[in-house]
Computed example of a mutant assay.
Amino acid sequence: MGGESTTRTAPGTARTGPAAATGRAGQRLSGLAVALGMVLFLGGFVWAAVVYRPYTVPTDSMTPTIGTGDRVLAQRVDGTDVRRGDVVVFRDSTWADAPMVKRVVAVGGDTVSCCEHGKLQVDGKEIDEPYLPAGTSAQSAGFPTVTVPEGRLFLLGDERRTSLDSTAHLTDAAGGSVARSAVEARVDAVVWPMDGMLQRPTGFTELGPLSSPGPLRAITWTVIAGVVLILGGAAYGPLAKRAASRARTGSAGAR
């Protein structure tokens, strides 16, 4: 017996190699998922900060679309990209020394008037405006036909009875219009309260194409995907480690 040599496999070494490898792979996958999730989560917020600006609307001139005190996200756009039906944030020193929020109802070259049959008319076409308060006409008091100068915009509030908009500046040199260059951003959504994306103003489609929504939905899904990956990755690591530990225990008990 003195010349014999007996070799034994120590518990937790060679026989547990596959389980250990599985645990290490799980940890790596967990780390990768968390890292990717952080990139998506933070990247979504950076993307939003570059594309959008937050505003608080202090008046009721845009109700029911936007209420007093509502927080909105407005996409940074060039004034040349603004189209009929857009709700825009602009600043004009002849109106007020502060950002204002109104709806574009006519652009340079258009003729706009109100209110035959109780509806706004642009280039002789009656505009359907479902965003107006229920049971109200397009304007509490009619106004004569205005031809909007090139490079300018004619703007109205959705609450026409109280809004100080282009109709309050008809005697100005530009007939109540505002320069496109005065536009700072285009409102995409009401985020507080969470009313969501603004509806497309389909009543203007006969006069030309509408603006496309901004990337807010894509940004939102990017942030959500980041959160899912972070939480999923953080949970998967400990689960994979526990599974590997059970596999090692089971392998040792089977000897």
Score class of each variant (00 low, 15 high):
residue 198 L to S: 00
residue 231 L to S: 05
residue 195 D to A: 14
residue 218 A to N: 12
residue 219 I to M: 06
residue 223 V to I: 11
residue 223 V to A: 02
residue 222 T to I: 03
residue 174 A to M: 10
residue 231 L to K: 10
residue 199 Q to L: 12
residue 203 G to I: 00
residue 199 Q to I: 01
residue 205 T to V: 15
residue 221 W to I: 10
residue 220 T to Q: 15
residue 180 R to A: 10
residue 186 R to E: 11
residue 180 R to C: 13
residue 227 V to A: 15
residue 208 G to S: 06
residue 221 W to Y: 15
residue 219 I to W: 03
residue 179 A to I: 08
residue 212 S to A: 11
residue 221 W to Q: 02
residue 188 D to L: 01
residue 209 P to E: 05
residue 187 V to Q: 07
residue 209 P to R: 00
residue 195 D to G: 15
residue 219 I to L: 02
residue 230 I to V: 12
residue 226 G to S: 06
residue 200 R to T: 10
residue 216 L to D: 10
residue 175 G to K: 00
residue 187 V to H: 08
residue 209 P to M: 02
residue 206 E to P: 04
residue 191 V to D: 09
residue 196 G to L: 01
residue 204 F to A: 15
residue 198 L to M: 01
residue 217 R to L: 15
residue 218 A to K: 04
residue 206 E to L: 10
residue 198 L to I: 00
residue 177 S to L: 07
residue 217 R to D: 15
residue 214 G to T: 12
residue 206 E to R: 07
residue 206 E to V: 08
residue 209 P to A: 06
residue 178 V to E: 07
residue 207 L to G: 01
residue 225 A to N: 04
residue 228 V to K: 02
residue 174 A to W: 05
residue 205 T to P: 00
residue 186 R to K: 02
residue 192 W to C: 09
residue 201 P to I: 02
residue 223 V to R: 02
residue 178 V to D: 09
residue 225 A to I: 07
residue 226 G to K: 11
residue 175 G to Y: 00
residue 177 S to F: 08
residue 211 S to T: 11
residue 217 R to N: 14
residue 203 G to R: 06
residue 185 A to V: 06
residue 191 V to Q: 03
residue 192 W to M: 11
residue 196 G to I: 00
residue 201 P to S: 04
residue 194 M to T: 07
residue 187 V to C: 11
residue 186 R to F: 09
residue 219 I to Q: 13
residue 220 T to D: 12
residue 219 I to E: 08
residue 229 L to V: 01
residue 204 F to N: 01
residue 231 L to M: 15
residue 176 G to E: 01
residue 212 S to T: 12
residue 227 V to P: 00
residue 207 L to M: 11
residue 218 A to G: 07
residue 203 G to N: 00
residue 202 T to K: 14
residue 227 V to H: 07
residue 175 G to I: 01
residue 189 A to G: 03
residue 181 S to G: 15
residue 218 A to C: 09
residue 190 V to P: 14
residue 215 P to Y: 10
residue 179 A to Q: 14
residue 180 R to W: 13
residue 215 P to N: 11
residue 197 M to S: 13
residue 198 L to C: 02
residue 172 D to L: 08
residue 173 A to W: 04
residue 209 P to C: 09
residue 202 T to S: 06
residue 212 S to W: 04
residue 214 G to H: 09
residue 186 R to M: 09
residue 227 V to Y: 12
residue 194 M to C: 08
residue 223 V to L: 02
residue 226 G to T: 06
residue 191 V to P: 07
